[in-house]
Amino acid sequence: MPIFHALANPARFQKLARPLTPLCFWAGVALALFGCWAGLTRTPADYLQGETVRILYIHVPCAWLGMGGWSALALASIAYLVWRHPLAAVAARAIAAPGALFAGLCLVTGSIWGRPTWGTWWQWDGRLTSMLLLFFVYIAYIALSRADAERGGDGRIPALFGVAGTILLPVIRYSVIWWNTLHQGQSIGLTGSTIAPSMLWPLWFTLSGFSLFFAGLVLMRMRAMLARQKVEARMRRMAAV
């Protein structure tokens, strides 16, 4: 908890975010690029899918960030609802747009992957449909939080929406286990992976790279929002004098 309280101080956050932003961003870009290069040229093709399997190295990180992004957004929303600290609301709002982008990229890369393997761009199976719903929920959150900010709301309604949206996370996660779907089951679990080690290793680079890149984006967007809030507060004070 002391860490949270230290971070919750906007001045201290700025001091930390300033060097952390380029660090996360560029380390993420480097790791992701290396992972993509390795995944495109340094791994064997799949016994069944051939070269198409290389889409895995970007599709999985996109899916991870789409879902992980919403988990982070929900946690920040809860932190805001409980401690009422404005920085938590800023964090939640900063996560929404990158999260939506990666959820969308997950759908797009999945669709491109589905055509040569399954023989279809899109099917309404449990996994695909629930991921599409998550994408729409992101869009709804962005619209809602924007409307709330414009009307001078305190951000409690978007935060509640952020918590309610977590309903989709177990549905997406377990859809391939509990329903029969066109999408294959989970490849990477806590107990191990069903991807051959010679094909798996670049995925760790793209996963960590995309995640750091995502963190860099969130920090940039938080800093932008905090600076804008500062300007607005100052303008109001100047207008009042």
Binding site: P44, D46, Y47, V53, T117, W118, A196
Partner: peptide, 17 residues
């Protein structure tokens, strides 16, 4: 219409053999 469904295992051809 037919759709191909593959499983969650990915491996190089030598290993699959």
């Amino acid at each position: 219409n037919l759709l191909a469904k593959h499983d969650e295992r990915y491996m190089p051809p030598q290993m699959a053999g």
